[in-house]
Design a protein around this nucleic acid. Structure first.
Lengths: 191, 191
DNA sequence: GGTTCTAGAACC
DNA sequence: GGTTCTAGAACC
Protein backbone atom coordinates (compact mmCIF):
# COMPACT_ATOMS: atom_id res chain seq x y z
CA UNK A 1 0.00 0.00 0.00
CA UNK A 2 1.52 3.30 -0.99
CA UNK A 3 1.20 6.65 0.69
CA UNK A 4 -1.78 7.81 -1.32
CA UNK A 5 -3.83 4.78 -0.31
CA UNK A 6 -2.58 4.97 3.22
CA UNK A 7 -3.71 8.55 3.49
CA UNK A 8 -7.06 7.72 2.00
CA UNK A 9 -7.59 4.92 4.49
CA UNK A 10 -6.75 7.17 7.38
CA UNK A 11 -9.10 9.80 6.09
CA UNK A 12 -11.92 7.33 5.61
CA UNK A 13 -11.31 5.77 8.99
CA UNK A 14 -11.36 9.04 10.80
CA UNK A 15 -13.99 10.91 8.89
CA UNK A 16 -16.20 8.22 7.50
CA UNK A 17 -15.63 8.45 3.78
CA UNK A 18 -15.21 12.16 3.57
CA UNK A 19 -12.13 13.34 1.68
CA UNK A 20 -9.27 14.67 3.77
CA UNK A 21 -10.00 18.15 4.98
CA UNK A 22 -6.94 20.38 4.50
CA UNK A 23 -4.80 18.47 2.05
CA UNK A 24 -6.81 19.13 -1.07
CA UNK A 25 -3.83 18.76 -3.31
CA UNK A 26 -1.04 16.72 -1.85
CA UNK A 27 1.87 17.32 -4.15
CA UNK A 28 2.98 14.21 -6.03
CA UNK A 29 6.54 15.08 -5.18
CA UNK A 30 5.80 14.61 -1.49
CA UNK A 31 4.07 11.25 -1.78
CA UNK A 32 6.70 9.98 -4.15
CA UNK A 33 9.49 11.09 -1.90
CA UNK A 34 7.81 9.56 1.12
CA UNK A 35 7.47 6.27 -0.71
CA UNK A 36 11.02 6.53 -1.92
CA UNK A 37 12.29 6.89 1.63
CA UNK A 38 9.86 4.61 3.37
CA UNK A 39 9.55 1.69 1.05
CA UNK A 40 11.95 1.76 -1.84
CA UNK A 41 13.33 -1.49 -0.52
CA UNK A 42 16.82 -0.03 -0.74
CA UNK A 43 17.69 1.05 2.76
CA UNK A 44 21.35 1.00 1.93
CA UNK A 45 20.69 3.78 -0.57
CA UNK A 46 18.13 5.90 1.29
CA UNK A 47 16.42 5.52 4.64
CA UNK A 48 15.05 7.33 7.68
CA UNK A 49 17.59 8.46 10.22
CA UNK A 50 17.68 6.71 13.60
CA UNK A 51 15.05 8.95 15.12
CA UNK A 52 12.77 8.87 12.09
CA UNK A 53 12.88 12.66 12.03
CA UNK A 54 14.76 13.00 8.75
CA UNK A 55 15.95 10.90 5.88
CA UNK A 56 19.44 10.17 4.70
CA UNK A 57 20.67 9.50 1.20
CA UNK A 58 23.55 7.13 1.87
CA UNK A 59 24.51 6.58 -1.77
CA UNK A 60 23.70 9.59 -3.95
CA UNK A 61 25.08 7.91 -7.08
CA UNK A 62 22.82 4.89 -6.69
CA UNK A 63 19.86 7.05 -5.82
CA UNK A 64 20.38 9.11 -8.96
CA UNK A 65 20.93 6.22 -11.30
CA UNK A 66 18.54 3.62 -9.96
CA UNK A 67 15.85 5.15 -7.76
CA UNK A 68 15.17 8.66 -9.05
CA UNK A 69 14.17 7.52 -12.54
CA UNK A 70 11.68 5.11 -10.95
CA UNK A 71 9.90 7.93 -9.16
CA UNK A 72 10.61 11.04 -11.21
CA UNK A 73 11.35 12.07 -14.76
CA UNK A 74 15.05 12.54 -14.30
CA UNK A 75 18.13 11.07 -12.68
CA UNK A 76 19.81 14.16 -11.30
CA UNK A 77 20.53 14.37 -7.63
CA UNK A 78 20.63 18.15 -7.85
CA UNK A 79 17.13 18.33 -9.31
CA UNK A 80 15.91 16.20 -6.43
CA UNK A 81 17.56 18.55 -3.96
CA UNK A 82 16.07 21.54 -5.73
CA UNK A 83 12.61 20.11 -5.24
CA UNK A 84 13.31 19.34 -1.59
CA UNK A 85 14.27 22.94 -1.02
CA UNK A 86 11.20 24.15 -2.87
CA UNK A 87 9.07 22.27 -0.36
CA UNK A 88 10.99 23.60 2.61
CA UNK A 89 13.23 20.66 3.37
CA UNK A 90 16.65 21.57 4.65
CA UNK A 91 19.90 19.70 4.76
CA UNK A 92 20.28 18.86 8.41
CA UNK A 93 23.76 17.40 8.76
CA UNK A 94 27.01 18.73 7.37
CA UNK A 95 28.64 15.38 6.85
CA UNK A 96 25.94 13.42 5.10
CA UNK A 97 22.98 13.95 2.76
CA UNK A 98 20.38 14.19 5.49
CA UNK A 99 17.25 16.24 4.79
CA UNK A 100 14.62 17.29 7.23
CA UNK A 101 11.15 18.81 7.27
CA UNK A 102 9.03 19.18 10.34
CA UNK A 103 6.10 17.50 8.63
CA UNK A 104 8.04 14.71 6.98
CA UNK A 105 8.69 12.01 9.52
CA UNK A 106 8.61 8.26 9.79
CA UNK A 107 5.11 6.95 10.42
CA UNK A 108 3.61 10.43 10.08
CA UNK A 109 2.48 10.33 6.47
CA UNK A 110 -0.72 12.12 7.45
CA UNK A 111 1.32 15.26 8.05
CA UNK A 112 2.42 15.49 4.44
CA UNK A 113 -0.64 17.54 3.57
CA UNK A 114 0.68 20.35 5.70
CA UNK A 115 3.78 20.73 3.59
CA UNK A 116 3.41 23.53 1.11
CA UNK A 117 5.35 24.39 -1.96
CA UNK A 118 7.22 27.62 -1.54
CA UNK A 119 6.03 30.30 -3.89
CA UNK A 120 7.24 33.77 -4.48
CA UNK A 121 5.45 35.37 -1.57
CA UNK A 122 2.24 37.19 -2.40
CA UNK A 123 3.96 40.20 -0.88
CA UNK A 124 2.16 43.25 0.39
CA UNK A 125 4.00 45.91 -1.56
CA UNK A 126 3.20 45.16 -5.20
CA UNK A 127 -0.23 46.73 -4.72
CA UNK A 128 0.94 50.29 -4.54
CA UNK A 129 3.92 49.72 -6.75
CA UNK A 130 1.75 48.57 -9.61
CA UNK A 131 -0.48 51.58 -9.33
CA UNK A 132 2.40 53.94 -9.95
CA UNK A 133 3.16 52.72 -13.43
CA UNK A 134 -0.05 54.21 -14.78
CA UNK A 135 0.54 57.69 -13.42
CA UNK A 136 1.25 60.71 -15.63
CA UNK A 137 4.50 62.73 -15.32
CA UNK A 138 5.25 64.86 -12.31
CA UNK A 139 7.49 67.76 -11.28
CA UNK A 140 7.55 67.67 -7.53
CA UNK A 141 11.10 66.58 -6.84
CA UNK A 142 10.86 66.96 -3.10
CA UNK A 143 8.05 64.46 -2.79
CA UNK A 144 9.87 62.14 -5.09
CA UNK A 145 12.99 62.40 -2.97
CA UNK A 146 11.05 61.76 0.17
CA UNK A 147 9.39 58.85 -1.47
CA UNK A 148 12.68 57.31 -2.40
CA UNK A 149 13.92 57.58 1.13
CA UNK A 150 10.77 55.98 2.45
CA UNK A 151 11.04 53.18 -0.02
CA UNK A 152 14.63 52.58 0.86
CA UNK A 153 13.74 52.42 4.52
CA UNK A 154 10.90 50.14 3.65
CA UNK A 155 13.04 47.72 1.73
CA UNK A 156 15.61 47.63 4.48
CA UNK A 157 12.89 46.82 6.96
CA UNK A 158 11.58 44.09 4.69
CA UNK A 159 15.05 42.68 4.48
CA UNK A 160 15.33 42.67 8.23
CA UNK A 161 12.03 40.88 8.52
CA UNK A 162 13.14 38.27 6.03
CA UNK A 163 16.21 37.68 8.11
CA UNK A 164 14.15 37.39 11.25
CA UNK A 165 11.88 34.89 9.56
CA UNK A 166 14.85 32.79 8.56
CA UNK A 167 16.28 33.01 12.04
CA UNK A 168 13.00 32.02 13.55
CA UNK A 169 12.61 28.91 11.45
CA UNK A 170 16.17 27.94 12.15
CA UNK A 171 15.69 28.30 15.86
CA UNK A 172 12.45 26.39 15.68
CA UNK A 173 14.14 23.60 13.80
CA UNK A 174 16.95 23.45 16.32
CA UNK A 175 14.42 23.29 19.08
CA UNK A 176 12.53 20.38 17.56
CA UNK A 177 15.82 18.67 16.81
CA UNK A 178 16.88 19.04 20.40
CA UNK A 179 13.59 17.75 21.62
CA UNK A 180 13.86 14.69 19.44
CA UNK A 181 17.49 14.06 20.22
CA UNK A 182 17.06 14.43 23.96
CA UNK A 183 14.09 12.14 24.24
CA UNK A 184 15.80 9.53 22.11
CA UNK A 185 19.00 9.63 24.06
CA UNK A 186 17.07 9.40 27.27
CA UNK A 187 15.13 6.45 26.00
CA UNK A 188 18.26 4.65 24.92
CA UNK A 189 20.01 5.30 28.20
CA UNK A 190 17.07 4.07 30.21
CA UNK A 191 16.49 0.95 28.21
CA UNK B 1 54.46 20.07 -17.14
CA UNK B 2 51.35 21.59 -15.70
CA UNK B 3 49.54 24.71 -16.76
CA UNK B 4 51.35 27.03 -14.37
CA UNK B 5 54.75 26.04 -15.75
CA UNK B 6 53.43 26.06 -19.26
CA UNK B 7 52.19 29.60 -18.85
CA UNK B 8 55.45 30.70 -17.33
CA UNK B 9 57.41 29.25 -20.22
CA UNK B 10 55.17 30.99 -22.70
CA UNK B 11 55.55 34.25 -20.87
CA UNK B 12 59.30 33.95 -20.67
CA UNK B 13 59.60 32.92 -24.28
CA UNK B 14 57.45 35.74 -25.54
CA UNK B 15 58.43 38.52 -23.22
CA UNK B 16 61.95 37.61 -22.18
CA UNK B 17 61.59 36.87 -18.48
CA UNK B 18 58.94 39.44 -17.72
CA UNK B 19 55.94 38.18 -15.80
CA UNK B 20 52.72 37.74 -17.73
CA UNK B 21 51.08 41.08 -18.37
CA UNK B 22 47.34 40.88 -17.69
CA UNK B 23 47.01 37.71 -15.66
CA UNK B 24 48.37 39.00 -12.40
CA UNK B 25 46.37 36.49 -10.44
CA UNK B 26 45.33 33.47 -12.42
CA UNK B 27 42.77 31.77 -10.25
CA UNK B 28 43.88 28.34 -9.04
CA UNK B 29 40.46 27.03 -9.96
CA UNK B 30 41.15 27.76 -13.62
CA UNK B 31 44.56 26.15 -13.83
CA UNK B 32 43.36 23.15 -11.88
CA UNK B 33 40.36 22.74 -14.09
CA UNK B 34 42.46 23.10 -17.21
CA UNK B 35 44.81 20.41 -15.98
CA UNK B 36 41.89 18.26 -14.98
CA UNK B 37 40.45 18.42 -18.47
CA UNK B 38 43.68 18.41 -20.44
CA UNK B 39 45.79 15.90 -18.65
CA UNK B 40 44.01 14.01 -15.95
CA UNK B 41 44.81 10.87 -17.92
CA UNK B 42 41.17 9.88 -17.66
CA UNK B 43 39.63 10.81 -20.97
CA UNK B 44 36.78 8.41 -20.38
CA UNK B 45 35.77 10.54 -17.40
CA UNK B 46 36.43 14.06 -18.69
CA UNK B 47 37.84 15.42 -21.94
CA UNK B 48 37.67 18.20 -24.52
CA UNK B 49 34.83 17.99 -26.98
CA UNK B 50 35.65 17.15 -30.59
CA UNK B 51 36.32 20.77 -31.55
CA UNK B 52 38.31 21.54 -28.44
CA UNK B 53 35.92 24.41 -27.72
CA UNK B 54 34.41 22.96 -24.57
CA UNK B 55 34.88 20.10 -22.19
CA UNK B 56 32.62 17.21 -21.37
CA UNK B 57 32.23 15.32 -18.14
CA UNK B 58 31.33 11.86 -19.37
CA UNK B 59 31.10 10.21 -15.98
CA UNK B 60 30.05 12.65 -13.25
CA UNK B 61 30.17 9.96 -10.57
CA UNK B 62 33.74 9.03 -11.34
CA UNK B 63 34.75 12.64 -11.63
CA UNK B 64 33.27 13.37 -8.21
CA UNK B 65 34.72 10.39 -6.45
CA UNK B 66 38.12 10.03 -8.08
CA UNK B 67 39.22 13.23 -9.80
CA UNK B 68 37.71 16.14 -7.87
CA UNK B 69 39.41 15.23 -4.58
CA UNK B 70 42.73 15.13 -6.41
CA UNK B 71 42.35 18.73 -7.55
CA UNK B 72 40.04 20.35 -5.03
CA UNK B 73 39.03 20.05 -1.41
CA UNK B 74 35.78 18.28 -2.04
CA UNK B 75 34.12 15.59 -4.07
CA UNK B 76 30.84 17.24 -4.97
CA UNK B 77 29.92 17.63 -8.58
CA UNK B 78 27.56 20.45 -7.70
CA UNK B 79 30.34 22.43 -6.01
CA UNK B 80 32.42 22.03 -9.14
CA UNK B 81 29.55 23.32 -11.27
CA UNK B 82 29.02 26.23 -8.88
CA UNK B 83 32.63 27.27 -9.41
CA UNK B 84 32.32 26.91 -13.16
CA UNK B 85 29.36 29.24 -13.14
CA UNK B 86 31.18 31.70 -10.91
CA UNK B 87 33.87 31.95 -13.57
CA UNK B 88 31.38 32.38 -16.38
CA UNK B 89 31.32 28.86 -17.78
CA UNK B 90 27.97 27.75 -19.10
CA UNK B 91 26.50 24.36 -19.74
CA UNK B 92 26.49 24.11 -23.52
CA UNK B 93 24.57 20.96 -24.34
CA UNK B 94 21.25 19.79 -22.93
CA UNK B 95 22.01 16.10 -23.11
CA UNK B 96 25.44 15.91 -21.56
CA UNK B 97 27.61 17.66 -19.02
CA UNK B 98 29.40 19.90 -21.47
CA UNK B 99 30.70 23.26 -20.24
CA UNK B 100 32.02 26.10 -22.29
CA UNK B 101 33.87 29.37 -21.83
CA UNK B 102 35.17 31.51 -24.65
CA UNK B 103 38.61 31.68 -23.07
CA UNK B 104 38.84 28.04 -22.07
CA UNK B 105 39.82 25.99 -25.09
CA UNK B 106 42.13 23.18 -26.00
CA UNK B 107 45.69 24.37 -26.62
CA UNK B 108 44.79 27.93 -25.57
CA UNK B 109 45.94 27.89 -21.97
CA UNK B 110 47.36 31.37 -22.39
CA UNK B 111 43.80 32.72 -22.58
CA UNK B 112 42.99 31.57 -19.06
CA UNK B 113 44.21 34.86 -17.64
CA UNK B 114 41.35 36.63 -19.31
CA UNK B 115 38.77 34.69 -17.39
CA UNK B 116 37.49 36.64 -14.42
CA UNK B 117 35.61 35.60 -11.39
CA UNK B 118 32.12 37.03 -11.27
CA UNK B 119 31.45 39.26 -8.32
CA UNK B 120 28.26 40.09 -6.54
CA UNK B 121 26.91 43.30 -7.98
CA UNK B 122 26.77 46.32 -5.68
CA UNK B 123 22.96 46.36 -5.91
CA UNK B 124 21.92 46.85 -2.31
CA UNK B 125 18.24 47.25 -2.95
CA UNK B 126 15.60 44.76 -3.96
CA UNK B 127 14.71 44.37 -7.59
CA UNK B 128 11.35 46.06 -7.29
CA UNK B 129 13.11 49.25 -6.27
CA UNK B 130 15.37 49.23 -9.30
CA UNK B 131 12.46 48.74 -11.64
CA UNK B 132 10.76 51.63 -10.00
CA UNK B 133 13.62 54.05 -10.56
CA UNK B 134 13.53 53.47 -14.29
CA UNK B 135 9.81 54.02 -14.49
CA UNK B 136 8.14 57.21 -15.67
CA UNK B 137 7.49 60.07 -13.23
CA UNK B 138 4.29 60.28 -11.30
CA UNK B 139 1.66 62.85 -10.30
CA UNK B 140 2.33 64.62 -7.06
CA UNK B 141 -1.09 63.82 -5.66
CA UNK B 142 -0.28 60.24 -6.26
CA UNK B 143 3.13 60.74 -4.70
CA UNK B 144 1.55 62.25 -1.64
CA UNK B 145 -0.85 59.36 -1.38
CA UNK B 146 2.01 56.96 -1.79
CA UNK B 147 4.01 58.69 0.86
CA UNK B 148 1.22 58.16 3.32
CA UNK B 149 0.99 54.51 2.43
CA UNK B 150 4.71 54.07 2.72
CA UNK B 151 4.78 55.74 6.10
CA UNK B 152 2.00 53.52 7.34
CA UNK B 153 3.75 50.48 6.04
CA UNK B 154 6.98 51.54 7.57
CA UNK B 155 5.45 51.70 11.00
CA UNK B 156 3.78 48.36 10.50
CA UNK B 157 7.06 46.82 9.51
CA UNK B 158 8.72 48.28 12.57
CA UNK B 159 6.03 46.68 14.67
CA UNK B 160 6.59 43.33 13.01
CA UNK B 161 10.29 43.57 13.67
CA UNK B 162 9.66 44.27 17.33
CA UNK B 163 7.52 41.15 17.49
CA UNK B 164 10.17 39.09 15.77
CA UNK B 165 12.75 40.32 18.22
CA UNK B 166 10.60 39.20 21.09
CA UNK B 167 9.99 35.83 19.48
CA UNK B 168 13.67 35.39 18.83
CA UNK B 169 14.70 35.96 22.40
CA UNK B 170 12.02 33.58 23.56
CA UNK B 171 13.17 30.83 21.21
CA UNK B 172 16.78 31.42 22.15
CA UNK B 173 15.90 31.09 25.80
CA UNK B 174 14.10 27.83 25.18
CA UNK B 175 17.06 26.53 23.23
CA UNK B 176 19.59 27.28 25.93
CA UNK B 177 17.26 25.81 28.50
CA UNK B 178 16.98 22.63 26.47
CA UNK B 179 20.69 22.42 26.04
CA UNK B 180 21.27 22.70 29.74
CA UNK B 181 18.50 20.27 30.64
CA UNK B 182 19.65 17.63 28.21
CA UNK B 183 23.26 17.68 29.26
CA UNK B 184 22.28 17.54 32.91
CA UNK B 185 19.96 14.60 32.46
CA UNK B 186 22.51 12.81 30.41
CA UNK B 187 25.13 13.40 33.06
CA UNK B 188 22.86 12.08 35.79
CA UNK B 189 21.88 9.04 33.85
CA UNK B 190 25.44 8.18 33.04
CA UNK B 191 26.78 8.68 36.56
C1' DG C 1 38.95 32.70 -3.19
C1' DG C 2 36.62 28.06 -2.25
C1' DT C 3 32.73 25.24 -0.59
C1' DT C 4 28.13 24.59 0.79
C1' DC C 5 23.30 25.21 0.86
C1' DT C 6 19.26 27.43 -0.94
C1' DA C 7 16.64 30.21 -4.18
C1' DG C 8 15.47 32.63 -8.68
C1' DA C 9 14.12 32.13 -13.17
C1' DA C 10 13.30 30.06 -17.52
C1' DC C 11 11.53 26.40 -19.77
C1' DC C 12 8.76 22.27 -20.11
C1' DG D 1 3.91 21.66 -10.74
C1' DG D 2 8.51 19.61 -12.36
C1' DT D 3 13.21 20.04 -14.29
C1' DT D 4 17.20 22.53 -15.48
C1' DC D 5 20.65 25.95 -15.16
C1' DT D 6 22.66 29.77 -12.75
C1' DA D 7 23.26 32.93 -8.91
C1' DG D 8 23.01 34.70 -3.97
C1' DA D 9 24.65 34.32 0.42
C1' DA D 10 26.82 32.42 4.37
C1' DC D 11 30.56 30.21 6.03
C1' DC D 12 35.27 28.58 5.82
Amino acid sequence: MDVANQLEEQAQGEQGGKPPAPGKCLAPFLTKTYDLVDRSGSEHIVSWNEEGTAFVVWLPEDLSQHLLPKYFKHCNFSSFIRQLNTYGFRKSAPDRWEFRHEKFQKGQAHLLGEITRRKCEPSVYPSFLKARDKGPPVEDTRLLEENKILQRENSELLLQIAQYKALESELTQHLSQFTATCSNKKARLLS
